[in-house]
């Protein structure tokens, strides 16, 4: 087991190291312009030199992402419960929900900007919008796929509707809720960055654009890597909560 864990950590790191070395060699051997493709060492250097700036710009992006995600959870799960338990609501809302998904979120961004301005609210709104759908759909799917045997058991014990919901449906749906949440948190980062691209005064996305326009490619790349790291950390955080809350939900236990 420990050996497997080591292998699973070691091999991707090894692969990454190979890519970084190849990249470094390529940029040096062919004297690639720093503006076109900065080398890993350039990016690392920019990361260190602009550490304070990068850190300061991380907070607005992180805040918008997490807040948008949390609001999506708080509004999405109750809506999923309603949709899963009411035929009328399901028939009414589900097609609308799916239809709104065909609207490209990037295209909504300018409109959201008109509503909420250049501050935190716009990116938060976009992060929320993209995170909302996977949470609602996966939670509703989970609530509807309660094992029929468990429902029959609850019925044979004459459990009340609330008992059926709280003791059977909801726990059975939790693994689905988390699979939706993991997709949602990743999308929320993207949503926040879209918000920053379209119009904002701060954040890593904003920094990336600004650095790019000033041909400060190493800093732009550094911002990109920080954004990726942010996404990975947030995903890992949700996965960790899942392990704590749904210890039975993993295929391998």
């Amino acid at each position: 087991m420990k050996r497997l864990l080591l292998e699973r950590a070691l091999y991707p790191l090894l692969g990454l190291a190979v890519i970084v070395v190849a990249w470094q060699l390529y940029t040096q051997l062919y004297a690639v312009s720093r503006i076109v493709l900065p080398s890993p060492s350039d990016i690392a250097l920019a990361s260190v030199r602009h550490f304070a700036l990068l850190l300061a710009q991380t907070w607005p992006t992180l805040g918008a992402t997490v807040l948008g995600f949390v609001i999506a959870l708080v509004l999405g799960i109750p809506l999923a419960v309603c949709v899963a338990n009411s035929r009328v609501l399901n028939l009414t809302l589900y097609p609308i929900l799916v239809a709104t998904q065909s609207v490209p979120k990037v295209a909504i961004a300018p409109i959201v900007l008109v509503w909420f301005g250049f501050g935190m609210e716009s990116k938060l709104a976009i992060a929320f919008l993209v995170a909302f759908f996977p949470i609602v759909v996966d939670t509703a799917t989970g609530l509807r796929s309660t094992p029929p045997g468990l429902l029959e058991l609850a019925r044979s014990l004459r459990a009340s509707p609330w008992q059926v919901f709280s003791k059977v449906q909801m726990p059975a749906a939790l693994p689905f809720v988390f699979s939706g949440a993991k997709v949602a948190i990743t999308l929320a980062v993207i949503g926040a960055v879209i918000g920053e691209f379209v119009g904002s005064v701060d954040g890593l996305g904003n920094l990336l654009l600004a650095a790019n326009s000033q041909l400060e490619s190493p800093l732009a790349w550094a911002a990109l890597i920080w954004l990726s790291a942010l996404g990975i950390v947030l995903f890992a955080a949700v996965a960790l909560v899942e392990r704590l809350v749904v210890p039975w939900g993993h295929s391998g236990r």
């Binding site: 045997g149 029959e152 058991l153 044979s156 004459r158 059977v168 726990p171 059975a172 039975w248």
Partner: peptide, 15 residues
Amino acid sequence: PEFGVVFQTANLMPW
């Protein structure tokens, strides 16, 4: 509810 029922499958709650 005062009867006991055993189904074809165990129907245990995994959580």
